[in-house]
Design a protein around this nucleic acid. Structure first.
Length: 419
RNA sequence: GUGGGCGUGGUCGAGGGGUUAAGACGCCAGGUUGUGGCCCUGGAGAUCGAGGGUUCGAUUCCCUCCGCUCACCCCA
């Protein structure tokens, strides 16, 4: 028996109302901030993500789906959205648009992880990118949009964790300070952490093993190692957040697993504790576009995991409306009426736009039962008697009222019961 | 990659070394001659995840594998 591949999921009809609602609400949030939708391919040249996300990151080293296509090109299923959007920004000369360019997307992403609650190999992200302006006002806007997105979904009790990791030029000084701090404890560190000590000491900060240890809490803070420009930017951002009363929590251990981040980094967590809690995360990436071949261009954005958002919606008891309208059913008795039922169904569909299905071939009783089971609003009944008269019976399933009308007026009968 | 939990009809879920392997929901049919939702009756549907071992006998005990799931790592 075939199953959906590990880490993938069928989104079944009964779940679609959550997805419809989430996609619509998130798009509305983005659009209300002036963001326009963009879609990029599901796969890209492998080199794009390796370069943008960073060769040393877990995402690139062990989570990317990479393969050779039939032409011998190495491609990768996109593990995240930012690099692809930046590639499109460069490729289509968007620097000629009024800056910043504001874009959003809702797309599937792929990472070869071990699945668990809120984590899948194919998952979906809502993301936004504001490219071409380094002003702290844009950081503020993106943070506001993140908060607004959660609100649109009805998710309360979210906390915004915030940090600044400075510019690329500031990084070596800070990395050196971190190494200095952790060096005495090298013996306590595991294999992975020792490698990180060399390659990317920032990552030691969110090692959960070390989290309780006082030497993580007492580690030097990136925000204390900012260069003048990054510091001014950071202070302006905090000032405007305070001025607008946007709640946030400073978290100096917050660093991100993707190498392209600079300055502002943030995560949004639900109040509930637990693994995979980050429901939305992002930051500034002022070096990324130059890194992948564009002119030096600043940018900032975030991504939110739709599955995780829906998980939280369910936990909070959200009940999104069911978008699917109740259908009409065309029932019949006899071979000739069966054909007429199909004709009637077609006619009512195009006249009203309402969903109409022809009943399966069963006893009339069976057809009515079927209509009830699928939640039909009303049923047309065609039999020899009705055909003789060029008429059709229409039964309102909620009230049980039934009347006979000329076939040409069938759609009117349906409309009446709708009101 | 590592560790824990779990695998019985479509779903949920009893059971237990020898049974026709419960029950519920769902599905199909019927409850007279053309009419639903409730109710009643009947029916279809399970090699009890796979392979091996112990045993006279295993779905039940043991081992391995596979799958699902949760957690670690990391991430949305």
């Amino acid at each position: 028996m075939h199953r959906a591949p590990r880490g993938t999921a069928d989104i079944l009809p009964e779940q679609q109302r959550f997805w419809e609602f989430a996609r619509t609400a998130l798009a509305a949030a983005a659009q209300s901030f002036g963001y326009a939708r963009i879609d990029t391919p599901i796969f890209e040249d492998a080199a794009l993500f390796a370069r943008a996300v960073g060769e040393e990151t877990d995402v690139v080293q062990k989570e990317m789906y990479r393969f050779l296509d039939r032409g011998g090109q190495e491609v990768t299923l996109r593990p995240e959205g930012t690099a692809a959007v930046c590639r499109a920004y460069i490729e289509h000369g968007m620097q000629n648009l009024p800056l910043p360019v504001r874009l959003y997307y809702v797309c599937p992403m792929f990472r070869y992880d071990r699945p668990q609650a809120g984590r899948f190999r194919q998952f979906h992200q809502f993301g936004v990118e504001a490219i071409g302006d380094s002003d702290a006002a844009v950081d503020l806007e993106v943070l506001q949009l993140a908060a607004a997105s959660m609100e649109r979904l009805g998710l309360g009790e979210m906390t915004l964790a915030l940090n600044s990791i400075g510019d690329a030029e500031d990084r070596p000084r800070y990395a050196a300070a971190l190494r200095e701090h952790f060096r005495p404890h090298l013996a306590h560190l595991g294999q992975d952490d020792r490698r990180r000590f060399e390659t990317n000491p920032l990552r030691l900060l969110d090692s959960k093993e070390l989290a309780d240890e006082s030497f993580t809490a007492s580690a030097p803070r990136s925000a204390d190692y900012l260069g003048d420009a990054a510091r001014a930017h950071w202070e302006e951002l905090l000032g405007s957040l305070d001025a607008l009363g946007v709640p946030y929590r400073l978290d100096h251990t917050l660093v991100r697993g993707l190498d392209y981040y600079t300055r502002t980094v943030f995560e949004v967590h639900p109040a509930r504790e637990g693994g995979q809690s980050a429901v939305c995360a992002g930051g500034r990436y002022d070096g990324l576009i130059a890194e992948i071949g564009g002119r030096p261009t600043p940018g900032i954005g975030f991504a939110a995991g739709i599955e995780r958002l829906i998980l939280n919606m369910r936990e909070q008891g959200a009940e999104p409306p069911d978008a699917a309208a109740a259908p009409l059913v065309a029932a019949y008795r006899g071979a000739r009426a069966k054909t007429e039922a199909a004709r009637l169904a077609a006619r009512v569909r195009s006249a009203t736009g309402a969903p109409v299905v022809v009943a399966p071939e069963r006893s009339l009783k069976g057809q009515l039962r079927y209509a009830s089971a699928v939640g039909a609003r009303g049923v047309f009944i065609l039999g020899d008697a009705e055909l003789e008269r060029g008429a059709v019976a229409y039964r309102d399933m909620a009230t049980g009222e039934q009347q006979e009308v000329p076939v040409e007026q069938a759609e009117d009968a349906a409309r009446r019961s709708q009101a």
